[in-house]
Nucleic acid binder design. Structure first.
Length: 230
DNA sequence: GCGACAG
DNA sequence: ATCTTGTCGC
C-alpha cells in the first residue's frame, strides 16, 4: 500500500479519482451475523492515532471483541480527505481481526462526498468488503430536514439531484445522522442496516462502541491488540 | 470572490 | 476530533 503520510492533497485527489471507479453500489443481500464498527481517537496536536474496530453480534448488537491499533499519522485533517488520515490504521485493526464482520459501519461518509469517495467507500474498496458510512455532520450534498419522530428520513442528494445517502432521525428530537453506502451496499440497504443498529442512543451501536473503545485505549485503560469482550 | 467544510 | 460544567428541555 502506498504511503499516505507523504502525499500532497493533489496527489490524494488523484488517488480518490482512481478508487472511485472501483466502488460498487449494490443491494446488500446476505445474512448479517456479525457487524463491525470503526473509529479513531487522538490527542489534539498529536500525530499518534488510536484506531479500533469493534465486532458485535447482529441483530442483538452484543459486543464480541475489540481490535485496537496505535499508529503515527502525518497526513493532516483536510475536509474531504479524512481517509488518508484514518484508513491506514483502520486497515491494520482490520487485519488483526480473527474473523471479519459481514458489514462494517465506518464513522464518516461513504459516497456522500464531493468525489463520491468518503472514508467508508475508501476503506471498503481497499478491504474489498461491504461498508456503510455513518456521519454526525454533513460534508456534501443538500437535503430537507426530516421529521422529528424516530426513523423519519429524507434523501441527501448531489449537485445533479442524484441520491447519495439518507438523513436519518435516529431518535426522537435529536439531530439527524447521515447514512450513505460505502462499498457493496446501496442507499436502501445501508439505511435498513443502520436503523437496525440503533438502540438507546443517537449513534448506532457499532460506531458508538468503537468510539468508546478507542477513547479507553487512548487513555491507557485498554491494551493494544485483539481482545474478546467479557 | 464568497460560503461550506466528515473526523 | 478533543477540552470541559453547568444548564436547559423533553
Amino acid at each position: 500500500m502506498t504511503d499516505y503520510n507523504t502525499l500532497t492533497v493533489p496527489e490524494a485527489t488523484a488517488i480518490q479519482k482512481t478508487l472511485k471507479d472501483q466502488v460498487i453500489v449494490t443491494p446488500f443481500t446476505g445474512d448479517i451475523k456479525l457487524i463491525g464498527g470503526a473509529d479513531i481517537s487522538f490527542n489534539k496536536f498529536s500525530t499518534t492515532v488510536y484506531a479500533g474496530i469493534v465486532l458485535l453480534t447482529f441483530p442483538d448488537l452484543k459486543p464480541v471483541g475489540y481490535s485496537l491499533v496505535r499508529k503515527e499519522v502525518l497526513f493532516p485533517y483536510v475536509p474531504g480527505f479524512l481517509a488518508f488520515r484514518e484508513v491506514p490504521a483502520l486497515l491494520e485493526a482490520w487485519e488483526q481481526l480473527p474473523v471479519k464482520p459481514d458489514v462494517l459501519v465506518v464513522d464518516g461518509h461513504g459516497i456522500a462526498h464531493p468525489r463520491k469517495m468518503g472514508i467508508a467507500s475508501h476503506f471498503g474498496v481497499l478491504a474489498q468488503h461491504p461498508t456503510i458510512g455513518s456521519a454526525k455532520k454533513k460534508l456534501y450534498g443538500k437535503y430537507e430536514e426530516p421529521g422529528l419522530q424516530q426513523n423519519e428520513h429524507t434523501l441527501l442528494t448531489d449537485k445533479f439531484d442524484q441520491p447519495i445517502g439518507t438523513v436519518l432521525r435516529s431518535k426522537k428530537n435529536v439531530k439527524p445522522i447521515f447514512v450513505s453506502p460505502g462499498h457493496l451496499t446501496d442507499i436502501p440497504t445501508s439505511l435498513r442496516i443502520l436503523q437496525q443498529s440503533i438502540r438507546n442512543y443517537r449513534l448506532p451501536e457499532p460506531t458508538r462502541l468503537a468510539h468508546n473503545a478507542v477513547n479507553s485505549f487512548r487513555k491507557g485503560l485498554i491494551n493494544e491488540g485483539y481482545t474478546k469482550a467479557d
